[in-house]
Nucleic acid binder design. Structure first.
Lengths: 250, 250
DNA sequence: CCAAAAGTGTTATCGATACACCCATGT
DNA sequence: ACATGGGTGTATCGATAACACTTTTGG
């Protein structure tokens, strides 16, 4: 917005969108939610995957737009949601396939799009109804992302989201509980933790730390549907966590 | 970019800008670089301050735009620069004063602006020529931000940048050296560190840690221009830092 | 009884913290 | 001589890391 430079550009406005990288955890693998996009046209029919997203509405804040996308897709409210980075490469929507799809779905000529990336964490366990019309949403193993070609620069966006979740973990580790069911086993929590941080935690040390520092509540229940010794269930308790944190001065 | 929702909005495109929160350090205080904006009009004359920024050019990446803004303002290249968050409140440019200024400087009707915030760290010590035409750029103590009313939502952007620098510190502490002159005293480094993290480090422990972990090089020079015992100078050495990090397995 | 995963404590090491006195310099 | 900040080492505490065997359950 310096005076001298603004004039060059004002004839041209990019569109602004939000794209949501939605993670889930099934007890074993870290998952990402992608929607199928299918295009039929003269040159044939193809189908690939993309991140859920939307161009922002006229009077909508960025956060509001992301919340809307999530709600339209999952029907859920109060989802853990965090803006992590924006992407504005002028060529990010220049792939013919992407241009084509944009024209069909928006019924307009869409030029450049600057998109704001959001990270969302949801409990995969709740039976989510993916409500959005003519979109098929499915969970994919995060590990398989490397072998998929997503629309636009969505591969990069997803990679950055993974980096972000890893960084954020060190600042607000409680975000992991957004991915777990209300009652979970210690092994599930450890699996998740190690998946995100790419570590291998020691079973005993992990247990100790979680109980002390994160104030997990040990329940009198066990998980019953496993073909081996039934593991104990735990619950995350915000109050206890705060208390534990205070004791150690954090 | 879900099909069902895009149509509502496509008549309306926001502008996209970058705004740079540029920090410096004078050896004692953490500073922020602001530019003066003056408007004279029928209703009188007023002057206030804003972050340096620019609407992005047609074929310009976000990072490129931020680099351009910095270069136009300071003449410097290779500045530490980091995107930290985007701001898209539809009302962020609705203040009459801001609207007025936008119209005058862009000679156009500018509607909504979504801006991408960048954090930049520069060595205040270099005599920087602030080159940008008709802008007066000056360093302000970060502490005085609370008492200033900046243009647009620039107060919020600056606050978020400060939060960000604090967080990033824990991940990549080397960024502090971007703010210091090549040769600096331990006290300067400690002052800076404590300013950013809002801590009060113990002198001895701090010294120990810096030498061990961050691989500072002790020089055979001292700072000469002080009216008390001349303090030793140190230099940050990337190679040494890497070695030190490896020894402790990070 | 076998396979598979759950559960459980102690010791050693490392990093973080707390703490006080003498030194060099300019005025 | 004095005022101002510079420079230095040790002891304690707490957190993290390493490590192996027994228990439960279903098949």
């Amino acid at each position: 917005m310096t005076d001298a430079t603004a004039n060059h550009t004002l004839a041209y406005n990019p569109h602004v969108s939000v794209d949501c990288v939605i993670f889930g955890f099934d007890g074993e693998k870290l998952k990402i939610l992608l929607i199928e996009r299918t295009i039929s046209e003269e040159e044939g029919y193809y189908s690939d995957k993309k991140l859920p997203g939307s161009i922002i509405y006229q009077d909508e804040d960025l956060d509001t737009a992301a919340i809307r996308v999530l709600n339209e897709l999952t029907g859920l409210k109060n989802i853990f949601l965090h803006q992590f980075r924006s992407f504005g490469d002028p060529k990010r929507s220049s792939n013919p396939r992407d241009r084509n799809w944009l024209e069909k779905t928006t019924k307009m000529k869409v030029g450049r799009i600057v998109t704001v990336g959001y990270l969302a964490l949801i409990k995969i366990s709740r039976k989510i109804i993916f409500e959005s019309e003519n979109t098929a949403a499915r969970w994919y193993d995060v590990k398989s992302l490397a072998d998929m070609k997503l629309a636009f620069d969505h591969n990069e966006i997803a990679r950055e989201a993974l980096k972000h979740i890893r960084h954020q973990m060190t600042l607000q580790p409680y975000m992991l509980f957004e991915l777990l069911p209300r009652k979970f086993t210690m092994t599930q929590l450890r699996n998740l933790y190690d998946l995100v941080l790419e570590t291998k935690s020691d079973v005993r040390n992990f247990q100790k730390k979680m109980l002390l520092v994160y104030g997990l509540e040990q329940l009198d229940e066990v998980r019953k549907d496993v073909p081996y010794r039934a593991p104990r269930l735990y619950r995350f308790n915000k109050r206890k966590a705060r208390a534990a944190k205070l004791k150690q001065g954090g």
